[in-house]
């Protein structure tokens, strides 16, 4: 069972529908016990960094997520969920993240339209089972105004080009992030979720 952390606003139904199509069991939850018993955790996310980290704080889930991460359980962060895994974000201030991956989050360069909205191509930066059956230059759907800006090179799995290099898929051991929305990225997105599913089975 994959625990999808349901900590507030946004479209998480599509994620559940996508997992169901792939025959991956999931539930929406904020319950610690359910999260601890799950085989994997997905942290979705749309909205503002501050609201999201505060919502996780109010639900008393920050330590739970950190503990599950250090126990080696697979975690997937999608969009803002991925950004929350990092140490800091400078979205309308200076906010502390979950600190599971080294690096920080900054606004996308003003030289391009913000938000980065639409289908963009992936450039693979390493060989990784997460990219199994995902072609170089495959299109995925992005919607975000902030992006990971400093990071460890070895954590970068695939990237997109938008006003500079945008980390798109990252992995640090059991912690995985996707800046785009795999549940909204057609067949390519479903394959990426399936690749995550293979890691946890």
């Amino acid at each position: 069972m994959i625990a999808i952390i349901d900590y507030g606003a946004g479209n998480i139904k599509s994620l559940q529908f996508a997992l169901t199509k792939l025959e991956l069991d999931s539930c929406l939850t904020t319950d610690k016990q359910t999260i601890e018993n799950a085989t994997a955790i997905i942290l979705p996310g749309v909205g503002a960094f501050k609201d999201a980290i505060e919502a996780l704080g109010e639900l008393d889930l920050i330590r739970t997520i950190q503990q599950e991460a250090s126990s080696g359980k697979p975690l997937l962060g999608i969009c803002l969920g991925m950004q929350l895994f990092y140490e800091r974000s400078y979205e309308d201030g200076d906010w502390q993240g979950l600190g599971l991956i080294q690096g920080d989050v900054k606004r996308i360069a003003e030289s391009v339209k913000v938000p980065h909205m639409g289908w963009n191509t992936l450039s693979h930066r390493q060989k990784n089972p997460l990219l199994s059956n995902i072609k170089e230059n495959a299109y995925v759907y992005f919607v975000h105004s902030y992006a990971v800006s400093s990071y460890q090179k070895e954590d970068l799995v695939s990237s997109a080009d938008y006003g500079g290099m945008v980390p798109a898929v990252v992995q640090k051991e059991n912690i995985i992030g996707m800046q785009f929305h795999p549940e909204k990225s057609g067949e390519v997105g479903l394959q990426l979720l399936q690749n995550f599913g293979e890691m946890i089975s």
Binding site: A9, G10, N11, V46, G47, D51, L80, M117, V143, H144
Partner: peptide
């Protein structure tokens, strides 16, 4: 925009 994010 504040509650759900500009993107939506």
């Amino acid at each position: 925009a504040l509650k759900f994010g500009s993107q939506c």
